[in-house]
Amino acid sequence: MTRESDKQPGGYGPPGDAPRLIGQGSVWIMVAAPTIWALHFVASYTFAATWCAKAGPSLAEPRWIIAMMGVICVALIGWLALLAVRRYGGVFVIFEEITESSERARDRFIGHVSLLLCILSAVAIVFTALPGFFFSTC
């Protein structure tokens, strides 16, 4: 199986091509998933608090919005996980240590870390949204 990361050993694309924000060599993918979780967290709580203060004691309708936010964020993270695998060659479990100093090894490391962070963030988002399903009142 060839991966995108195999095709361009050490390269950042053709000269003149702007480096991708999320592509080989760029570390932004590592912070992306936790950032989505953080934004989701702040957004959920702000939204629920505002709703409770303004609209009153039932959470029955906003829980759908909370659920939608959760689904969108988890989907975004799923897409990032896909990129971590495709562009960086990240794997879930590393069986032999990555010690080699090369672009390829660095990418694989970033891919691996990002993938794990994606999983962690997705679980965290589910935990954040969970109370919305159990409580229908403020």
Binding site: F127, L130, F134, F135
Partner: peptide
């Protein structure tokens, strides 16, 4: 991976859900 990550996550998730069911009843 199973004993240190997957199973604890599922367990904590399950306990969280159960705790919330109980909390929902008393509130």
């Amino acid at each position: 991976i199973w004993g240190g990550a997957v199973i604890p996550t599922l367990l904590v998730g399950g306990l969280l859900a159960w705790g919330m069911v109980i909390l929902r009843d008393i509130t």
